[in-house]
Simulated scan of single mutants.
Amino acid sequence: MTGETPRSRRFDPGRRARIIDAVLGLIADEGVAGTSHRKVATRADVPLGSMTYHFASMDELLREAFSRFTNAVIDRFEIRLAAARNIDEARLAVADIIHEDVFATRDDLVLTHELYALAAREPAYRELISEWMRRSQQALGRHFEPDIARELDALIEGLTIHRALGEGSRDRERTLDTVRRLTS
């Protein structure tokens, strides 16, 4: 050796976050079925052994990664609605959520659908979806009655899926008109 020390991996305070970033990226690229400890460790540039040090199982890693993802999505949702000062601005915020926020990237779309698939099979992931919906409806409830907030939440979900998959209207004004009719 020439006096250089190998890259130290012992003190790595960002390792856990890097692992979560890596698993989310891997799921977006290959799906949950294509995700393994080895692939995540390689992508995160961490030793394979640190995977089980930080996460007892792949299920724990997936739950934590999807929890971080859903929290980031709902945080954007809540910020958008919190900025609305009246009903008209709230309606505009809903249209912006549909057209700009929910599936802002291809990865957001894929991660959401991977989470839906897991939630269809596993109760722990249904809890994540339920919390996401509860927080969405709570944010909408700042401006709309509870029944309308639930319907708007479903409209947001459905229209973003249709738009993202190329089947829905890309016309923001049409979306805004639908929101106005539903909330009048």
Rank of each mutant, 00 (worst) to 15 (best):
L115A: 04
S136Y: 09
A139N: 01
T5R: 12
R121P: 01
L128A: 03
D107M: 01
E173R: 06
V73Q: 05
V32I: 15
A104P: 02
R38T: 11
D21N: 10
V179Y: 14
L128M: 05
G14D: 02
H54R: 08
V73N: 01
F69L: 07
E4D: 08
F55V: 07
V46F: 07
R76M: 06
L81H: 05
S36C: 00
L61Q: 05
D177S: 10
I79F: 05
S50T: 08
T70Y: 03
L81N: 04
V73K: 05
D107T: 01
R142L: 13
P146R: 06
R126F: 01
D29P: 00
L48I: 12
L81M: 15
E64G: 01
F66M: 05
L152H: 06
V102F: 12
H162I: 04
T35I: 06
A17N: 06
Y53Q: 03
R15F: 08
H162M: 11
L115G: 01
A119H: 06
T183I: 13
R15E: 14
A124L: 09
V94M: 01
R43A: 15
A93M: 03
L26D: 01
T105P: 02
M133F: 13
L81S: 03
R43P: 05
H143I: 04
A28S: 09
H54F: 15
L155P: 02
A82L: 09
M1P: 00
E167V: 13
G31R: 03
E114C: 04
S57H: 03
G49Y: 05
L128E: 03
D45C: 07
L81F: 10
L182G: 02
R163C: 10
E89F: 15
F11K: 07
D96P: 02
